[in-house]
């Protein structure tokens, strides 16, 4: 769901210093995604956000409207070369503009990006289990296991190392590998 009326064009109105890349940006170069209703309904917007990001043209920026500041997303986007401009426009009303930084800016905003391979979001089913109270992360990941097709894998994002998940994966015959990212969350790849 897009919501241009509430997200569009407010970067200038707040008086926040506008990066050069966003000055005088025509509307057709803004892709706006408003996930506020989805988040309020308790749904997980990460998959939709990444789909929108992956469909961006090189000259487009991505504007996200959310009810809280999506700090973990900054790291994910930085790894893909996006800088961001954040505006808090009221209670539960955040507007974040992600734009492609030049090589120097990208390196400054994501110093770890060059030292580790980018997460293969495109070829893995991403299960974002962050921001959930235990045992919901484990339940969410286990519920998604049947979606793994032959040769496929799940990339599960969790706030903590999923210690209790490992025995369950072993029992079901899955192989897994966990990395702690430089942004403080954990990525677990699961495959058959």
């Amino acid at each position: 769901m897009t919501n241009e009326s509430s997200c569009h064009g407010d970067a200038q109105s707040t008086g926040t210093p506008i990066p050069e890349a966003l000055r005088n940006l025509p509307d057709d170069r803004r892709v706006i995604l408003d996930v506020r209703d989805q988040v309020r309904a308790g749904e997980e917007p990460f998959q939709r956000i990444m789909q929108s990001v992956m469909s961006l043209r090189d000259d487009q920026v991505f504007v996200l409207c959310n009810i809280f500041e999506p700090i973990p997303l900054y790291g994910v986007m930085a790894q893909r070369g996006f800088a961001h401009l954040t505006e808090r426009r009221g209670p539960q009303d955040w507007c974040i503009t992600f734009y492609r930084a030049d090589a120097q800016a990208a390196a400054a905003s994501a110093p770890a990006a060059a030292s580790r391979p980018a997460a293969p979001v495109g070829d893995a089913i991403v299960v974002d289990a962050r921001g959930l109270e235990p045992p919901q992360p484990m339940a969410k990941i286990l519920e998604n296991l049947p979606r793994i097709a032959a040769g496929g894998q799940i990339l599960a994002l969790t706030d903590r190392r999923p210690m209790l998940l490992y025995p369950k994966l072993e029992e079901r015959g899955f192989t897994f590998s966990t990395e702690e990212t430089t942004h403080g969350w954990f990525e677990t790849r699961i495959w058959k």
């Binding site: 580790r116 190392r161 210690m163 209790l164 490992y166 025995p167 994966l169 072993e170 899955f174 192989t175 897994f176 590998s177 966990t178 990395e179 702690e180 677990t188």
Partner: peptide, 17 residues
């Protein structure tokens, strides 16, 4: 911290009682 959990999950180094 990269790869602290082995790539193949044949043994869990920690677990709840």
């Amino acid at each position: 911290m990269v790869g602290s959990k082995p790539a193949s999950g044949n043994s869990a180094p920690a677990r709840q009682p």
